[in-house]
Design a protein around this nucleic acid. Structure first.
Lengths: 247, 247
DNA sequence: TAGTGGTCTAGACCACTCC
DNA sequence: GAGTGGTCTAGACCACTAA
């Protein structure tokens, strides 16, 4: 019999392992433990949640499946340090001569403040008119452009970015967000589409107008799944390749 | 203690639930039960495999995760009847006015016999020079072309297709494969890319030469993961949209 | 050697489906 | 009411890690 339900805010009819999972997830989201830190042992969790080890195990297993924690036999269960590295390597063949992934250089072409465009606000679940920081960013290998990105960030949360010289942004933005704004991207929703390059995009990417271009629209999310960043990336279609398994 | 290992061909050091899963999967692949039929109950499986119910349950759970069986509370565990419907609706926005998915009409432009091209043979793990049936197929809505497909099938397995009038192929090929060749597609590996339409493709699809086109290369697989069909589909990029969740 | 997660047991009771 | 899968228990022993 389930005893001592320890997640008072939940419907008691939910399975116990489900409630334990939700409680743990909420605690992790609230940074009760930092990334890399261990959770309490299964025995401790069982005791503190008034459940058997098997039930706790089932709860933890679903957190593993969700990518929130990681179990290492003989060591413990750890909060996953997100190695979220954008989807570049999933979608584009950016590899060095040895096949190892290569991060393209990055140049900020423009940084300004605007109201969030309607479509962006909608995708991020923000009210229209929220103030935004907009970045226009060109990424390249050895000076050859490969990716053009337009990025919108809610201004209030990302204000510190306005005070840094864009030349010092570096090749990756997400570490910057973490360092200066205390904001951690852990997942994203992306939509792929394709189009013919507009004259402006073609020029910036070094393509012919009308050449096929892949468009990746991304909403980057925090651990609690709140939208943090909206981004649209365009790259030449001939660099693009994506693999799926379906059934 | 694990007792009576019932999967003699396996390394005894593998976990029992793992061996049970593999045994069940092999039996399903060998058509011990037909799609839609129920597996034995958990209690029966536990007895016949000399394991406890919990262990059998873990094995069955992994088959559920792999999409091979389906559990219905109070009813039983059933071999999944594959509703594999190609990836059209995953990749392209083919919907009617009410938003319901719409299957495009299909016309076979050409059917002939050739040796498997090298790249196709490689993708299907066949020896180069295997004889093939090649189909060229145009799919459209109300006469407007939306997808151009080139299909290669190993001739020996699909011989009956050579004796049917291509006009009677119908809108979907996989039911045809099943009916005439006793071959069931249950999953597929696909690779997406994009290119500028060649003059020939553009003409058949009703596009301008050079317009962006999405290319989907598919290897369709049987339940035992043997390649059955190789297919390359091309469609206008403006119809294309694909959604992924990453972390 | 002590402590962790990984596997496994042999039951119990519950929720659901079907007759 | 009989039979199914769904949840849960309270242990056991094993494999692995680290001191």
């Amino acid at each position: 019999m389930p005893s001592l339900p320890s997640s008072p805010s939940h419907d008691g009819r939910l399975p116990l392992y489900h409630r334990i999972r939700d409680t743990l997830h909420a605690e992790i989201t609230a940074h009760k433990w930092k990334p890399g830190e261990p959770l309490p042992t299964e025995a401790e969790l069982a005791k503190s949640h008034g459940a058997s080890i098997g039930t706790v195990r089932k709860a933890v297993e679903s957190l593993v499946a969700a990518g929130v924690v990681e179990r290492l036999q003989g060591k413990g269960t750890f909060i996953r340090r997100p190695d979220f590295q954008s989807s570049l390597f999933r979608f584009f063949r950016f590899a060095g001569a040895d096949g190892a992934p290569r991060v393209p250089e990055s140049r900020i072409l423009k940084r300004d403040e605007t109201p969030m465009p309607v479509t962006v606000a909608a995708a991020m679940n923000l009210t229209v008119g929220t103030r935004a920081i907009r970045l226009l960013r060109l990424r390249s290998f050895d000076g050859k452009p490969v990716l053009l990105e337009e990025i919108f960030l809610p201004r209030d949360r990302f204000k510190p970015l306005l005070e840094i010289d864009p030349c010092e942004f570096g090749a990756l933005l997400y570490p910057l967000y973490e360092q200066y704004c205390g904001v951690l991207v852990t997942s994203a929703r992306e939509t792929l589409s394709a189009e013919a390059a507009s004259p402006r995009h073609a020029k910036l990417l070094g393509l012919e107008t009308g050449a096929p271009v892949i468009v990746i629209e991304r909403v980057a999310l925090a651990l609690d799944r709140k939208p943090l960043e909206w981004r649209q990336s365009r790259g030449p279609a001939d660099q693009f390749r994506y693999h799926v398994e379906i059934r």
